[in-house]
């Protein structure tokens, strides 16, 4: 219908008009990859939200995925926390990604992961938190607590489940699965299970690039 088309055009031309079907803008931090930013609900990693990562194997691409954002946070003088990383983050590689090592803090004890993450969030001082909890500690209640704590702060919280760990039903803003070879699936976006699942694929993990879903 030409008349409704005109109306649509008129309405969408106005920048000061907010319509119910649009979502209010979510404050976010760029992922450092334009292609990925476009696909995420807020145009980047949402601030003050819990982001769940489900890597298929350890070291399958989670660090590569997060490093641009983490490095940017440290360069702005904000501390970044690694809670119980499963392997040793290589300092030479972190510096190559322009991460300021003086701003990086690592908690090596795995049993206090959720507690430490909550303390850091409460302080409101951290730029980003990446936690690798033990599968046994992952319970709906602790994830829920963490999510509530995250909402008081400005920092994105990345919860990286151990491979094979069944994540509890949670209200995380984003849930991403990282498949071997560096393919990325958005299992859950801001709109619940996103109908337009993004598939990020890469010839290798070093540069993640988007590819339209076939």
């Amino acid at each position: 219908m030409p008349s409704s088309n005109t109306l649509e055009q008129l309405l969408s031309a106005r920048g000061d008009l907010w319509r119910g079907r649009q979502r209010p803008p979510v404050p976010s931090i760029s992922t450092g990859r334009a292609a990925l930013d476009q696909q995420l609900p807020g145009g980047g990693w949402p601030r003050g939200k819990l982001i769940e990562l489900l890597p298929e194997r350890v070291g399958v691409g989670e660090m590569e995925l997060l490093l641009p954002c983490l490095a940017e946070q440290t360069r702005q003088g904000l501390p970044v926390l690694f809670l119980a990383p499963p392997l040793i983050p290589c300092p030479q590689s972190l510096v190559r990604h322009k991460l300021d090592l003086t701003r990086l803090l690592i908690v090596r004890e795995q049993q206090y992961t959720f507690w430490a993450a909550e303390q850091c969030l409460k302080s409101g001082l951290c730029g980003a938190i990446v936690a690798w909890p033990a599968s046994a500690d992952v319970r709906e209640r602790s994830v829920r607590r963490l999510q509530l704590a995250a909402e008081n702060g400005q920092a994105p919280v990345f919860l990286c489940y151990a491979p094979g760990c069944k994540p509890p039903a949670s209200l995380a803003a984003l849930r991403l699965a990282i498949r071997t070879g560096g393919a990325l699936d958005v299992l859950r976006g801001q709109r619940g299970k996103s109908p337009d699942t993004i598939r990020l694929n890469a010839s290798n993990v070093v540069s993640l690039t988007t590819r339209a879903r076939s």
């Binding site: 040793i88 983050p89 300092p91 972190l94 090592l101 003086t102 990086l104 803090l105 690592i106 908690v107 090596r108 004890e109 206090y112 430490a116």
Partner: peptide
Amino acid sequence: VGEEGLCGI
């Protein structure tokens, strides 16, 4: 976490 448990790299 103890003095050892918290560190930088």
